[in-house]
Design a protein around this nucleic acid. Structure first.
Length: 555
RNA sequence: GCGCCCGUAGCUCAAUUGGACAGAGUGCUUGACUACGGAUCAAGAGGUUGGGGGUUCAACUCCCUCCGGGCGCGCCA
């Protein structure tokens, strides 16, 4: 519908341009949907934008635009009028709106998929948690947003790869190995305290116990370093398995699990790290001072310089992060999207600076920053501190509320907003719970078609003009908006827009359903209404699929 | 001290990317099926968009400043 408006307005502006000899008039036409009904179905501010260039007042320009609309306007519009400072409001004929339902039917599962990505290959990297414990709700939000962004981009014509970067190098993994080994020794009556900042959760004991079952006391007798390495590797595999299973539980599957140790560090000092160091040196982007090797961030637009190699000769995380992202680009991905916790926001600019230094276009690298999640129960915050040893994991919450609720609640907020996850609300199986509100609309439609089947009332597009009630036209307009919503959420990497939209569709449908009986004796009317309801089903189904939420036949 | 995010109805959050009288849910008040699923619907009340200034025909949105909350700030990851 919007495209129709855009098209006729462009034609009008073009013919005005010819008449007054100004062929360079701006061509963008932003078609908006007014909040108030008396301003019509669609409106444009084009006249106000053109007014300056043409040296006329906006209302005069608006008048010109209306006068020069092509003849097609009579089949499309009931009324076109000028309002306010120079808005042009379009009142579309109901038949013209309703006729567009055919497009939803024609496209089916493809409705909403516009293909603006044009096959561009995108690597979406998300979660990427250390394999040192269970996932918590912060990871969960990251996971669900990342997965849904990937779904949306994929539906929008991008070639998407989902990657989990396994941060299995460095101090955290060493601590994990030490913690597990300490617990293992305890099992044999040795007093072995786990390190100060080590891992104290019960799962560490369980892993230690498994190692005992597998190896007996043999780790006590061998080399300590080998025992530590074994403990670390064993725990790594175990915990990665847990992480993978938890993610699958909420419908998340990765195409690639990419190990830092294996793919970036390589063997010895010089794998990709050495190579990146060399390349940055050649670009003159490094400096030695105070015994360390620095990346000269200030020369590449960042606010400060950063250490790449510490004075003891070991690399920082930043160096391996540069190597990893250069590696991504060199694996052939044209665009990179990362989902990061907000506590990492300071890393965006320095990584971009480093990529520029290496000669990459840093606009190929984008980060979705996720603000924190607060778990709430009975109005109070539930502690999620990892250090306390006992904390609420993502797995706990999934067990309590289910995958659908988990996903939807984490998608309900824009990423840059803090999110309060209300466990009491999430547990409710009632209308208060927005997930069920949408799913109920879907199940209700399914039930309608069962009923219609029994009564031999088929859907049909032969009398769509009978859909003339305000609720029906509103519902159709809402459905036709879906591709715009998907496009917006793809461009802005903002999945919450789809969640909100689906709530609106469900609401409009419930309103309609309560107002009008769908399956009626008049077969023509019944057919038209069922046709509309089928389109609602298609949109709900497509939208829920993007969010990774099930569409139940019955509830 | 510097940088980023946030501040919108009692509570939790939206707002077509600068558009017209700022919208939902929830909570509160009051209503609606002898017909397709009441996990539904309808109505009412609720606001100086944290304060102040500026840009603009038009500001929740952009700029400046102050207040409050969160996060980050060179040899941690």
């Amino acid at each position: 519908m919007k495209e129709d408006i855009e098209r006729v307005v462009l034609q009008s502006v073009e013919s005005i341009g010819k008449k007054i000899n100004m062929t360079d008039l701006p061509v963008e036409v932003e078609v908006g949907i007014p909040k108030r009904k008396e301003f019509g179905d669609f409106s444009i501010n084009t006249a106000m934008i053109l007014a300056k260039k043409m040296g006329k007042n906006p209302r005069q320009v608006a008048e010109l635009i209306i006068e020069n609309l092509p003849g097609e306007k009579d089949t499309l519009f009931r009324k076109v009028e000028i309002a306010g400072a120079g808005f042009i409001n379009f009142f579309v004929r109901e038949e013209a709106i309703v006729r567009k339902l055919a497009e939803i039917t024609r496209l089916g599962e493809e409705f909403g998929a516009r293909g603006l990505g044009n096959g561009l290959s995108v690597l979406v990297e998300f979660v990427s948690a250390n394999p040192t414990g269970y996932l918590h709700m912060g990871h969960a939000r990251n996971a669900v947003v990342g997965d849904t962004v990937a779904n949306i981009l994929s539906a929008s014509g991008y070639k998407v790869t989902r990657e989990f970067y396994i941060n299995d190098a460095g101090r955290q993994m060493e601590l994990l190995g030490e913690s597990v080994f300490a617990r293992y020794r305890e099992l044999f009556g040795e007093a072995a305290e786990i390190p100060e900042d080590g891992y104290k959760g019960d799962y560490v004991k369980e892993i230690a116990s498994e190692i005992r079952g597998l190896k007996g006391d043999s780790l006590l007798r061998g080399e300590r370093n080998e025992a530590l390495a074994f403990s670390r590797e064993f725990a790594r595999e175990k915990l990665l398995g847990f992480i993978r299973k938890d993610l699958e539980e909420i419908g998340i599957h990765f195409d690639v699990w990419y190990s830092e140790t294996e793919n970036i560090h390589g063997s010895g000092d010089d794998g990709k790290l050495g190579e990146i160091k060399k390349r940055l040196t050649e670009k003159g982007a490094l400096e030695e001072k105070e015994g360390a090797l620095w990346f000269a961030g200030t020369r590449y637009g960042d606010t400060q310089d950063w250490v790449l190699v510490k004075s003891d000769g070991s690399p920082t995380y930043f160096l391996s992060d540069i190597a990893y992202h250069a590696d991504k680009l060199e694996r052939g991905f044209e665009s990179l999207i990362n989902v990061w916790g907000a506590d990492h926001h300071g890393h965006v600019s320095r990584l971009k600076a480093a990529l520029r230094a290496l000669g990459f276009d840093d606009s190929r690298f984008n980060v979705v920053l996720i603000q924190f999640v607060r778990l709430m129960r009975k109005g109070e915050e539930v502690s999620m501190s990892k250090r306390s040893g006992s904390y609420v994991t993502m797995r706990d919450v999934v067990n309590e509320v289910g995958a659908d609720v988990m996903r939807f609640f984490l998608l309900m907020r824009s990423s840059e907003s803090h999110l309060d996850f209300d466990l009491d609300l999430a547990r409710k199986e009632s209308s208060e719970n927005p997930v069920y509100y949408i799913q109920y609309a879907y199940a209700r439609i399914k039930s309608l078609f069962r009923k219609a089947g029994e009564e031999g009332a088929p859907e049909s597009d032969s009398s769509l003009h009978l859909l003339s009630q305000p609720e029906e036209v509103d519902l159709v307009k809402k459905l036709l908006l879906y591709p715009d919503i998907v496009e917006d959420s793809a461009e802005l990497l903002a999945p919450h827009k789809i969640a909100y939209y689906l709530l609106e569709v469900a609401s409009d449908f419930h309103t309609y359903y309560n107002k009008s009986r769908i399956v009626v004796d008049d077969l023509a009317l019944s057919g038209a209404r069922l046709y509309l309801v089928r389109c609602v089903q298609t949109v709900l189904s497509n939208g829920l699929k993007l969010l990774g939420i099930s569409a139940p036949e019955r509830m």
